[in-house]
Design a protein around this nucleic acid. Structure first.
Lengths: 178, 178
DNA sequence: GGCTATATATAACG
DNA sequence: CGTTATATATAGCC
């Protein structure tokens, strides 16, 4: 209330009423001044991450936020973790929720191969393996190929956008070889 | 200025001065009431995404934000795209960008495995194969895994554009399984 | 980094 | 979903 437009003249007898410093509305365009941009980046990034944190604490949502400054520095925050959310995101790519397909999870679970979590990553040559390990290893390779075929076919079947398709493939690859 | 403490009694002759509705400070804990949580989720998500957009427009940063509501709905925003940033993020995980690799073509050539053009696509169970074929098949699977690992690592090392990266992966997959 | 005035986001309500 | 009081974020300056 009582906003006298511009003139800020005379009669400033209040001692604890600092004037002349305040904020202006800025337009949302790239800040050209390098230094100002850096300052704004720092301040707003801090605010953004803080807001992000509050958001997921309040709403119990899973979230990932990844930022690269134009200088290339990486900042990220995630709940429960960036990787978790990113993986879930990549997994969702091949299975749209508007699709009345069977709602079973496609990625994200199943060891895929009989090797358990650690997988089979043998440094030795095949000859060094005893027959049991060898059989397991063979099964692993078998499963690798089969899963590859199945998953790729599955992905092809569904009509997702190209980029989604590729994202799913990438997730698949990592899942299978590591 | 002129904030009369509490008493808001009498003399409310201004017609366009609604009183009595305002906001309280809330504590940052999971909102237990399901409906309130949903409302807060919607409002804050909107605000968060808006802020995110302004942030990257002002500072020219690359950003990805991915949200899953506790009901499982996915929301995301990215500049230049979620996928781009996520991939850059995944790339950073294993290798720092200060590496100027040679720009030679990675894909497009080499049969990759000793199986010849037709590949090995066995319908029969392993037991039905004679020992020679079995060994060949084993070798094929071996090579499949090794090539997968090598190629993916190779692709990750090099900083090619996103679409090239995915395109390469896709070609690789088809090459390996068909 | 801290400060202050102002712009923005948003809780409680209709 | 619109409104309004209030909490928060932050531009400009130190």
């Amino acid at each position: 209330m009582a906003g006298n437009e511009e003139g800020e003249e005379a009669g400033e007898t209040e001692s604890d009423k600092k004037i002349g410093t305040g904020r202006k509305k800025i337009e949302i365009k790239k800040i050209e001044n390098k230094f100002s941009r850096k300052v704004t980046f720092s301040k707003r990034r801090k605010g953004l991450f803080k807001k992000t944190e509050k958001f997921c604490q309040l709403t119990d949502a899973e979230i990932a936020i990844i930022v690269f400054s134009n200088k290339g520095r990486l900042f990220s925050y995630g709940y429960p973790s960036v990787e978790h959310v990113v993986n879930r995101f990549l997994g969702e790519q091949c299975d749209d929720q508007s699709d009345p397909f069977s709602p079973e999870e496609v990625l994200e679970e199943e060891p895929l191969v009989g090797g358990g979590e650690e997988g089979y990553w043998f440094e030795e040559s095949i000859d060094d393996l005893d027959s049991t390990k060898f059989e397991e290893y063979l099964c692993y390779l078998e499963c690798l190929r089969k899963n590859l075929v199945l998953r790729v076919e599955e992905l092809i079947m569904r009509r997702t956008s190209e980029i989604d398709f590729f994202g799913g493939i990438l997730k698949l690859i990592f899942h299978l070889i590591y």
